[in-house]
Simulated scan of single mutants.
Amino acid sequence: MYKRIALLFTILLLNSGIAKRPAIAYLVPHLPNLDDRQLEREGNDLLGESIQLAQLQQFDLAITRAKLATQLIPKNPDAWSVLGGLYLADNKTDLSIAALQKAKALEPKESAIWFRLGNAYFQKKDYSKAIESLQSGLAIKPNVPGALFDLGNAYLMSGKKTDAIATYEKAYAQDKKFWYPLNNIGLIKYEAGDINEAIRLWKLSVAAATDSNGAEPKLALAVATYQKGDKEQGLKLGEAAIKLDNRYGNITFLKENLWGDRLITDTQAFLELPRMKAALAQGRSTQAEEKSPR
């Protein structure tokens, strides 16, 4: 499980101290000559609008407003941090890093900036800088479960599996409802051949999951259960996982979520089984119906 950037981005924006505004002007406003207090007020208004637009997934409009805000209040770290977060959510990694570096220079003791920067470097696959940035943020604000989870992911992608497990365990210790670290420890254990431990961790993850994200540990558990010989239970779990979220039938998507080679190989074979093919076809059909105009 890695792809939670949009969720993390929204949480960080809402914690950034920028007041939300009740109205959105969909055209970029023309601004007359303004004094410093008016510039600050207009800049903060634009940031509030950009946050609302981001929550509506309207990133182009949100970025336009955030960029204008950085011109009005260029010494405000929130403006650069919001812009960097928007670029990150819109998969514009280099632009995100550039904006976040400016935010960091203005406010080096703001942990949220370091956490976003760590996510940006992770997305760029610069895992050493991701680790460095996340560690810097955690030095300012320790024991943040999401940041610890992200650090564990960076360790995992750097091949530092022992560090990854220790960091995931620390993340889970902060919030026992935050099951994602357990899921990823399961991924590591499966690759190491400890299928029983992976199954135990994925069962805990499935029990804790309350939304469609639970499809990931459920599918992993399905594959492992099938491999252990309980084929009927494995197929039932697999069908339920695909019904929750059929994206997990896409091998590329699984790789993006840090599934290792051994689990990928076993999952490919599992998804070729007739019942799983039928479940995937049904999932695609349901998705198409939901997208079709009424």
Rank of each mutant, 00 (worst) to 15 (best):
A6G: 01
K176N: 13
L201A: 09
K141A: 14
K109G: 07
S50M: 09
A19S: 13
R284W: 01
T267Q: 02
Q287V: 04
L27Y: 03
L263H: 05
E232P: 00
W114E: 07
A89C: 04
K161W: 06
L31K: 05
L34Q: 13
D126F: 04
A208M: 11
N183R: 06
Q58N: 14
N153G: 12
F149C: 01
L47K: 10
D45T: 13
T70P: 08
L280D: 05
Q174R: 03
D266R: 12
G249C: 05
F253K: 02
A222I: 07
Y226N: 06
M1P: 08
D94M: 07
F122C: 00
Y2C: 00
A198C: 09
A222T: 03
L138W: 02
R41F: 11
A105S: 15
A130W: 06
S111T: 00
G260K: 13
R65K: 15
M276D: 03
K170D: 12
L72F: 11
S81H: 12
P74A: 10
L39P: 00
S212K: 14
K189T: 03
T210S: 14
G85W: 02
H30W: 04
L86Q: 12
I5A: 06
N44A: 09
A99F: 08
A130L: 08
P142G: 06
N15R: 14
K291S: 12
K218I: 03
R116Q: 13
D175G: 03
A147E: 03
L7K: 11
A6C: 00
A281Q: 15
S50Y: 07
A66H: 09
P181H: 09
L151E: 01
L56P: 00
L244S: 15
D126C: 04
L95F: 10
Q233I: 05
E232G: 00
T210F: 06
A279C: 06
D35R: 08
L271V: 03
F149D: 06
L134P: 02
D211H: 10
D150S: 14
K189C: 01
L280W: 02
S205W: 09
P77E: 10
L46G: 05
T252P: 00
S128L: 10
K3G: 06
A278S: 13
L46E: 05
T286N: 14
Y168D: 07
D175F: 01
L280I: 15
Y226L: 02
Y127W: 13
W202Y: 11
I51A: 11
K176P: 00
P77F: 14
A278T: 05
L13P: 00
E216K: 03
Q123S: 13
Y180S: 06
G84L: 08
K109N: 15
E290I: 06
N119H: 13
L95M: 11
K160S: 14
L56Y: 04
K20E: 13
T252Y: 08
A89S: 13
Y121A: 10
Q57V: 10
N44H: 15
Y127M: 11
G17R: 08
S50E: 08
L12F: 11
T64K: 15
L47C: 08
S285W: 00
A269M: 02
K129M: 14
A241Q: 06
F149Q: 06
Y87C: 05
K104N: 14
T265P: 00
L12N: 12
A209E: 10
Y190R: 03
S292Q: 13
I199E: 09
P142T: 03
N213D: 14
Q233F: 05
N246K: 11
P217R: 10
D45N: 14
L263I: 07
R294P: 15
